[in-house]
Design a protein around this nucleic acid. Structure first.
Length: 558
RNA sequence: GCGCCUGUAGUUCAGUGGAUAGAAUGUCGGCCUCCGGAGCCGAAGGUCGCAGGUUCGAAUCCUGCCAGGCGCGCCA
């Protein structure tokens, strides 16, 4: 646990600054301190810009600061070498001692090695997907699902208690339109004249639901005279059916939720009215044109005021979202994280203003926006719209390319960028497809371990391995990569950026294949064999560990 | 018109204010007696959208343009 190399180095640097008077300064030297991975091997395994930073704050030159730091650190057993390089970098070469400790740690502790206590067991909530129950999940929801679930896993890994939540928007005009669309399909099935509502849902998937509805509730429906009850019956049935699809699609995608929260519950429980009157009491509302408005502008100048209750007396979706967020915030989470698609971008300042109006600190509510997905097939872009019925369902994509490839593609780049999802590439079972490349490394290692067992070497025998024998640059590269894994995970959690893990895996798989083609793991030399098996087993554990976070399977054979 | 996101190799994309800007893929050329060739190596490929500014140092920060995406409802 808490195996961050960077934290260890940061601590050492802090100690040196405290110890050496000439390095003292008024400002906080570590604020601008960066410890990063240099671009070139000869610049060490890790490097810091601290000489730059400190020289600005003291009367010393980059060079002088660097030499002082080097003197103090060069005998640390964390490093084999510490070098100052002009113009102002301090480069660290990790010691064999530390790299071997890392290997032993990984093999002994498995996934526990990359765990952190950072979250201090605080409760965090991640709300994601929350697709309207008006149709099956499409490709865009896939990005939300993969991203949200991986994010939740990462936060758990660094010590938070994470709750995954899906908000079901089962209220409002869209549900009315949905029900009317089903009713039209019902008439279609009965051979009557029918017309799909123009603003309704055109997708053929509603025909199935209409059929099922007729089969199950046909009699009751034909006896129902009250139009409102009729509509409600259809709506409820339809929502339930669609939610079944959604749950099933998510299950196939390896995503599950702790709580499915119904928007209608907020209406039934009176929480909506309570939330609104709370805002009223605090003076954040006013009446105009017969509607009740929220004074967004009093909190964020650039924002326009928004309607909470329409002049016809109905509450807006915004109003239920106020109630929903109050409900969430009141549950005592250290942080509530909403993961939204770019089409909700305009909503962010509004909801932040609401959280503030409700009296919660700035950091309590955090929104992550991911950009939309473009699906490509045969070089052609495919558009996605639930209402028009022209969309590629997530289920279809998952069945076509597999859960693993789909999840990998979705989290492989930052949420800030548009995602071009190339179906043809994701489907390929060749090394062009990064997920197969990485899985292949894992399977290859499993195969080596199996071979070793056939030769009479058991996992327990590895414990006696002499890791001093791992001396080649290829072995060293892998060990360094493994040593950096905990930091990688910690940083992904801090920045809420899972895509770095995908890059890390690709890199490590590449390093492994490179090593493999140059050195035999199992050879006549038993000691060397044991040492290399130890290394390779650590790599395998690391791959499986990160895959587990990303919800991707680590196959033993392919 | 206003707000947010994006613009980096032919293509898809990485890149905490740091060192000679990287990878994958594609193109071209190589490597199988041997633990999984579903792999490996090499080469070519760039005015980091454009123009200013900030500083020891800018793909990264600021300003202004240009281009694309998403928003800007008493819809959800």
């Amino acid at each position: 646990m808490d195996n961050s190399v960077k934290d260890k180095i940061r601590k050492l640097l802090t100690q040196v600054i405290q110890k050496r008077e000439e390095l003292h300064s008024q400002s906080e030297p570590l604020k601008n301190l960066v410890i990063s991975r240099p671009k070139k091997k000869e610049w060490g395994d890790l490097s810091t810009n601290l000489p730059f930073v400190l020289s600005r704050q003291t009367h010393l030159s980059n060079h002088q600061v660097g030499q002082v730091l080097r003197e103090e650190l060069k005998s640390c057993r964390l490093f084999s070498r510490v070098e100052f390089v002009s113009p102002g970098f301090l480069n660290f070469f990790l010691s064999s001692f530390y790299l071997q400790e890392t290997l032993k740690g990984i093999v002994a502790e498995k996934g526990e090695f990359t765990r952190f206590s950072l979250g201090e067991n605080r409760k965090v909530q991640v709300e994601f997907v929350s697709a309207n129950p008006t149709g099956p999940l499409h490709i865009g929801h896939g990005r939300a699902a993969a991203f949200g679930d991986s994010m939740a896993n990462i936060l758990e890994k660094v010590g938070y208690q994470v709750e995954r939540e899906y908000l079901v928007n089962d209220v409002g005009g869209q549900i009315q339109r949905l029900a009317r669309s089903v009713i039209a399909r019902l008439r279609e099935l009965e051979g009557k004249s029918f017309e799909l509502p123009k603003d309704g849902y055109q997708g053929a998937y509603l025909v199935d639901i209409a059929g099922k509805l007729r089969e199950k509730l046909g009699k009751q429906l034909s006896q129902e005279k009250d139009e409102k009850s009729f509509l409600e019956m259809v709506a409820n049935f339809t929502i339930e059916e669609i939610l079944k699809w959604i749950r099933e699609d998510l299950r196939e995608f390896g995503v599950s939720f702790d709580l499915w929260f119904s928007e209608s519950e907020l209406h039934r429980s009176n929480e909506l009215l309570q939330a609104i009157s709370y805002l009223k009491e605090k003076g954040y509302t006013y009446m105009e044109d017969g509607a009740l408005w929220f004074k967004t502008s009093s909190i964020l100048e650039a924002e326009e005021d928004r309607v909470l209750r329409r002049s016809n007396g109905e509450y807006t979706y915004f109003a239920s979202d106020v109630a929903y967020h109050l409900n969430k915030l009141k549950r005592g989470f250290y942080q509530v994280i909403d993961i939204w698609g770019a089409d909700h971008i305009g909503y962010v300042p509004r909801m932040k203003a609401v959280a503030q109006a409700l009296g919660y600190p700035r950091g309590a509510l955090r929104m992550i926006i991911y950009q939309l997905v473009t699906l490509k097939r045969g070089g052609q872009k495919v558009s996605a719209s639930t209402r028009s019925g022209e969309f590629i369902p997530l289920k279809e994509v998952v069945r076509e390319v597999g859960k693993d490839a789909a999840r990998f593609f979705f989290i492989s780049r930052t949420g800030d960028s548009h995602l071009d999802f190339d179906l043809d590439l994701a489907k390929k079972q060749t090394p062009e497809n990064p997920v197969f490349y990485i899985q292949y490394a894992h399977a290859r290692i499993c195969s080596i371990m199996k071979k070793a067992r056939e030769k009479g070497i058991e996992l327990d025998d590895l414990l006696g391995a002499n890791l001093d024998l791992l001396r080649t640059s290829e072995e060293k590269t892998l060990m360094v990569q493994l040593a950096l894994l905990p930091d990688q995970i910690k940083e992904a959690a801090e920045n809420l950026e899972p895509h770095h893990l995908a890059g890390f895996l690709e890199e490590m798989a590449g390093q492994f294949h490179y090593f493999y083609t140059r050195h035999r793991v199992i050879s006549e030399n038993r000691d060397l064999t044991l040492a290399r098996l130890f290394l390779v087993e650590a790599v395998r554990i690391a791959i499986a560990d990160v895959f587990q976070i990303l919800g991707i399977s680590a196959p033993q054979e392919m």
